[in-house]
């Protein structure tokens, strides 16, 4: 078999290309540490997603230091949660699975991109150094309204990020002359303790309470309200913790008006 010299040279050059390409890919794996989606995520029965310890309540979880885990369930044609917020300078591991057909979870304009196959859990770890806002889209056809499947990933500055939740339990009315209690429940999803101040404003009165909410725990703060000081009528109240706020109205009624005095919640909800 006689091969022309030029063609022999080209054969060598072609091999150099091929080996060079594979060397580049290998560099990407060991240098910048790029890892492929693999079988680490394990499998899951799609029928059991609601009872699954991770996917039963999808969302962001703090697992320590700058590490977070985000569980996402994809289904035709949305992601749960639809909005994901994580801090900058963090290392986030996404766990994504599908309730129905094959989807993808692709963060637009980045190299965060995985197929989401029913029965499988896609696990991928991403470092977010800078704050930014990204769209998330499904790039695998998943039925008639596939093109409407989208989500949002917000990477916020570290000091603006927390996993605090506020809920308030307050009666809607109280008989004049009685005392009542407005209870703020502050929960802290971060692993570190949260030192903060819970403030209540009602009518023209205000009070503040410093609390330390333990990591991955919650704390109740009770504010005693004396209706005598408020006087009869409607009184708007506001409970604030950091950037979270709950509001409601407390009505002080004259006892003879026959108000039932039951503690039907007036302002009750989650921040």
């Amino acid at each position: 078999m006689n091969i022309h010299t030029y063609e022999k040279a080209w054969l060598v050059a072609a091999m150099v290309l091929i080996v060079g390409f594979m060397a580049t890919i290998t560099y990407g794996a060991v240098g910048p540490g790029i890892a492929m989606i693999d079988d680490d995520g394990g499998t899951i029965d799609p029928a059991e997603i609601n009872d699954h310890e991770r996917f039963g309540e999808p969302g962001v979880e703090h697992v320590g230091d700058d590490e977070y885990e985000v569980a996402v369930v994809a289904q035709a044609w949305s992601y749960t949660p639809e909005q994901i917020e994580v801090p900058a300078d963090s290392e986030v591991t996404f766990y994504v699975t599908s309730r129905d057909v094959t989807h993808s979870f692709s963060v637009v304009g980045t190299n965060v991109n995985t197929m989401v196959i029913p029965g499988q859990i896609s696990e991928m770890t991403v470092r977010f150094d800078e704050p930014g806002e990204y769209g998330i889209l499904c790039n695998e056809y998943c039925g008639e309204y596939h093109h409407t499947m989208e989500g949002k990933l917000n990477v916020v500055p570290e000091d603006e990020f927390d996993l605090t939740e506020l809920s308030v339990d307050a009666p809607s009315e109280v008989e004049a002359g009685n005392e009542t209690t407005i209870t703020a429940n502050v929960s802290n999803g971060m692993q570190e303790d949260l030192e903060t101040t819970v403030a209540l404003e009602i009518g023209d009165q205000g009070s503040e309470r410093d609390v330390t909410v333990p990591g991955d725990g919650s704390e109740e703060v009770e504010f005693t309200v004396d209706s005598a000081e408020l006087g009869e009528g409607d009184h708007d109240w506001t409970v604030t913790v950091d950037d979270y706020e709950e509001t409601g109205t407390l009505t002080v009624v004259n006892a003879t008006d026959g108000g039932d005095g039951s503690a039907a919640s007036g302002g009750d909800g989650d921040a």
Binding site: G33, A35, V107, G109, T110, V112, T125, D129
Partner: peptide
């Protein structure tokens, strides 16, 4: 494509066991 379009397109999926902290 590799060094500008791809590596410049971060964030990128990295290994769970991170040794990158020193490099990054």
């Amino acid at each position: 494509m590799y060094f500008v379009e791809f590596l410049g397109n971060g964030p990128t999926v990295v290994g769970a066991v991170l040794t990158v902290v020193g490099l990054a």
